[in-house]
Simulated scan of single mutants.
Amino acid sequence: MEDNIYLLVKVRIEHTHVKVHDAIYEIQNNSVCTVTDTETVKIIETEIMDYKLKS
């Protein structure tokens, strides 16, 4: 059986940006996420989904 699941990641940051949205954008575009297979679950695809920010 194939399903979509969503895993949330809590990240605590310290930054020098004037707007935290700039820091979020930077992290979203420069992060790498690794999710590995188990004996009974095969990972087909992973994606860091864009957090839609209001300007």
Rank of each mutant, 00 (worst) to 15 (best):
M1Y: 01
M1R: 03
E2D: 12
D3G: 04
D3F: 02
D3L: 03
N4M: 02
I5Q: 04
I5Y: 04
Y6V: 03
L8T: 07
L8F: 05
L8P: 04
V11S: 10
I13M: 02
I13D: 00
E14P: 07
E14C: 12
E14W: 14
H15E: 04
T16S: 06
H17T: 05
H17K: 13
V18I: 15
K19D: 09
K19V: 10
K19N: 15
K19F: 15
V20P: 01
V20L: 15
V20Y: 10
H21R: 12
H21M: 13
D22R: 09
D22F: 11
A23C: 06
I24D: 05
E26K: 09
I27S: 03
I27F: 05
I27V: 13
Q28T: 09
Q28I: 13
N29M: 12
N30I: 07
S31H: 08
S31P: 04
S31G: 11
V32Y: 09
V32E: 12
V32A: 11
V32R: 11
V32S: 09
T36N: 11
T38L: 02
E39D: 06
E39Y: 05
T40F: 03
K42A: 12
K42M: 09
I43E: 00
I43S: 00
I43C: 00
I44K: 01
E45N: 02
E45L: 01
T46E: 14
T46Y: 04
E47H: 14
M49Y: 15
K52V: 14
K52F: 13
K52R: 11
L53G: 13
K54F: 15
S55K: 15
